[in-house]
Design a protein around this nucleic acid. Structure first.
Lengths: 218, 218
DNA sequence: CGACTGATTGATGTGACTCAAACCTTGTGG
DNA sequence: CCACAAGGTTTGAGTCACATCAATCAGTCG
């Protein structure tokens, strides 16, 4: 497999390394760091679709379409594995079982997206935020084994949280103050500390089955 | 390919033919009719994830997971093509190019879902509704060639529309009254009539690029 | 003809938005 | 090493879109 990749790529935090409507030439796998996948709407607002953590795949587009449908931006320093689009065909020809693997990963991402849609469509602000915190807590624990205790990296500005959850950053701020005052969770200088995981899970109304199927590859 | 399918299945409107948390034994392709894919939340509310029209695939789950993640219900009389899960492996072994095809379809569904998420997360009620109308108008035109003029089948109750868009059916009703009074669109006995497509598209703030890539198979 | 499901409408409440200002952090250049 | 810039955070006051609650009405079916 190693022979197919065209190399790694290092990206600084804040860089948009994938742009919607631009030529989709490569498929990226996140090796380390965090990123967001998002799209712009015609009114200038931004919807963040999901968060890419190590193992996530970005930039894979349907056969017929050769433009990226979504953009992606690094939230932290990011290390990516690059697989040129043309090589994918070869790879799949040689290892057919990778086809179903790729489809499975795609379906897992779909499930995450559906979870996200339910969150935005049916829950109120506070539950959306706690739900997002729980999702990222679980995914972080699953991917990086060196997480200690109840503090995880959390490189999301309130603006980013708002754009992911369909809220204004102002309202995100108010809700996070409540969570802080209620002794549930605190975000401080890029780190999230869970003060009361019991209560956090309750408020998040988390779909537990979701935790069972991490979407990681490699 | 024909040899792999285990047969067709006819389903009446209103039947839940796929249930979340039940054994995922088959993959369904919609041959004719409309269906919804949805999930229940812990508070008893329902989020409709997307609409399945002819060509859509339902019930495909990641390798590791053998339970359905979502439910599906027929909105109209439905004809389905059934492919047993076990046969899928064989099929892909014999036709490796189907792997990338399956992955591509999955990614297309993901794009639809992302579109839906943006709609719910960032737009107000009226735009959400017009956007949904436009999506279904375009998809209907793409799949069934026998659509005449500006009227399409529209078997969605206001309850269903609300559950798809994160609104109450009461509010959906008010918005649809406005659309009717403004001479933009009317829904009447299971049919949607577009009165002013120009204005409908404007209000829908539709992402036009989306139209280019139908997610059909076969 | 009830019974039921979906559509319609009104009155009232509230969660989240908007606008606006101040504050804090972090990085930068003189 | 301080001044300043720039982004992000915090807080308040006022408003509005949508929810909730509660009826009534229309269409359909056994």
């Amino acid at each position: 497999m190693e022979q197919y990749k065209s190399g790694d790529r290092l990206v600084e935090a804040g860089t948009e390394f994938l742009s919607q409507d631009r030529q989709a030439d490569s498929i990226y796998t996140v090796l380390s760091g965090w990123a967001i996948r998002y799209q712009w709407l015609s009114d200038g607002s931004r919807q963040i679709l999901d968060f890419a953590l190590p193992g996530s795949i970005l930039g894979f587009e349907p056969e017929a379409m050769d433009l990226n449908r979504h953009s992606a931006e690094a939230l932290t320093k990011l290390r990516l594995c690059i697989l040129p689009r043309s090589k994918l065909i070869q790879l799949l020809a040689e290892f057919p079982e990778m086809g179903i693997k790729l489809a499975s990963i795609g379906r897992s991402e779909q499930i995450t997206l559906a979870q996200h849609l339910s969150n935005v469509g049916r829950r109120r602000a506070r539950a959306r935020i706690t739900n997002l915190m729980m999702e990222l807590l679980v995914r972080t624990r699953a991917t990086s084994s060196n997480v200690i205790g109840d503090t995880i990296p959390f490189p999301l500005s309130q603006e980013v949280i708002g754009d992911a959850l369909g809220l204004t950053s102002v309202h995100v701020n108010r809700m996070m103050r409540e969570l802080r005052e209620d002794g549930i969770a605190v975000v401080r200088s890029g780190k999230l500390t869970i003060l009361d995981e019991e209560r956090l899970m309750e408020e998040a109304e988390l779909d537990h089955r979701h935790l069972a199927a991490p979407m990681e590859v490699n």
